[in-house]
Amino acid sequence: MTLVKFNPAKNTASVNPWFTDVFESVFNDSVLTDRLVSRVPAVNIAESDADFQIELAVPGLKKEDFKISVDKNILSISAEKKNENNQEGKKFSKREFSYTSFVRSFTLPDTIDHAKIDAAYVDGILKLTIAKKEEAKVQSREIAVQ
């Protein structure tokens, strides 16, 4: 005996394929989904013996758009940018504003040095370097066998 699963999408498509196609195109429209989806920048986090590096992919912003703060062991990175196209003397029937903002927060370990946090924004990448405390750095040495 063969088990056949019921798939309502296939059955309604065979009855009225136009009906299914219209709703799929509306709900899968990239313009609609781009506006509904919250945009959070991608992050790379790396650790070396001396520090941590955090890189955020945030193209199209300026260094003045960023706000970086540390409160206890929480590092918060936020940005806000408003684009308004003001054109005098025109009557608009449709006018769209572009508004971009995000907030990312990271819990920092106790081994970091709060006084040595640097940030640089180059080519759409925000890079933060967070130094470790001297006592937290891994010190390697060779141990002789006796």
Rank of each mutant, 00 (worst) to 15 (best):
K5W: 03
F6I: 08
A9E: 11
N11I: 11
S14I: 07
S14C: 00
P17H: 04
W18N: 12
W18H: 10
D21Q: 14
V22C: 01
V22P: 00
V22M: 10
F23M: 09
S25V: 00
S25A: 14
V26N: 03
N28G: 14
D29E: 11
D29C: 11
D34A: 15
R35F: 08
L36Q: 15
V37T: 15
V37S: 15
R39W: 12
V40E: 05
P41Y: 08
A42I: 12
A42N: 15
V43K: 07
S48E: 02
S48M: 01
S48L: 01
S48V: 01
S48W: 01
D49G: 05
A50Q: 05
F52L: 07
Q53M: 10
V58A: 04
P59Y: 06
G60P: 10
K62D: 14
K63W: 03
E64K: 07
E64T: 11
D65P: 00
S69I: 09
N73A: 01
N73H: 04
I74H: 00
S76L: 04
A79E: 04
K82F: 13
K82G: 06
N83C: 00
N85V: 13
E88C: 00
G89C: 05
K91S: 09
K94Y: 06
R95Q: 12
T100Q: 14
S101E: 15
S101Y: 13
S101L: 06
F102D: 02
R104H: 09
F106L: 15
F106R: 04
T107R: 05
T107W: 03
T107I: 10
D110W: 08
T111A: 06
D113V: 07
I117C: 04
A119C: 09
A119H: 13
A119I: 08
A120F: 08
V122R: 13
I125G: 05
I125R: 12
L126K: 03
K127Y: 06
K133G: 04
E134F: 11
A136Y: 01
V138F: 03
Q139K: 06
Q139Y: 03
S140G: 07
